[in-house]
């Protein structure tokens, strides 16, 4: 494929059409029951169970610092993305199509009628979400912030079992 063509998935979010490169998207899913996570930064809108795995649901608008998206609910569509082994679901309003479209300038592709569709960068969004979450904790173990900046995962009571499971001792 020439450099100026991209495999993308086109979706709408808050009435705006956007696209994401397919290489980040593992599948399009329908969200299960979404549990909200109090104290999480606005970009992390909740978490749900996908085939036995806990997957966070991200708010694209909040991560792009463009306000707030709708609260994710069961049955909403989402793009399951995986970046550096981290899985997350990006809530969207509607998935329109999977297409190979020519790239336009400034992070966009051109749709069939030649209109520019902005590209979102799932990798950057996930990294932003991780950074936001770490900002809640505070970067340094000893910083005297509230509530409690110490690593939540230190101490004898949390015991790590392997292959992704943690036991509380």
């Amino acid at each position: 494929m020439p450099d100026d063509l991209k495999n993308v998935i086109v979706f709408t979010l808050a009435g705006v059409r956007s696209a994401a490169e397919l290489r980040w998207v593992r599948e399009v899913i329908s969200l299960g029951f979404v549990t909200s996570v109090p104290t999480a930064p606005p970009g992390i809108a909740g978490a749900f169970n996908l085939r036995g795995h806990l997957v966070p649901v991200l708010d694209i608008a909040a991560l792009a610092r463009a306000g707030h998206g709708a609260s994710p609910r069961q049955g909403d569509s989402a793009l399951l993305v995986e970046i550096d082994g981290v899985s997350a679901a990006l809530r969207v309003d509607k998935v329109e199509e999977v297409a190979t479209l020519p790239a336009a300038d400034a992070g966009a592709v051109l749709d069939g009628r030649g209109r520019p569709v902005p590209l979102i960068d799932p990798a950057a969004l996930v990294r932003q979400a991780i950074a936001d979450a770490n900002a809640v904790r505070g970067d340094d173990d000893d910083a005297p912030a509230q509530p409690t900046p110490r690593d939540p995962t230190t101490g004898a009571r949390v015991r790590l079992a392997f292959d992704g499971d943690t036991t509380l001792g």
Binding site: T39, H53, L54, V86, A129, V136, P152
Partner: peptide, 12 residues
């Protein structure tokens, strides 16, 4: 018990 993963584990 499931691990929270890099997105939620930082939450204290």
């Amino acid at each position: 018990v499931k691990q929270l993963g890099p997105l939620l584990a930082p939450l204290p």
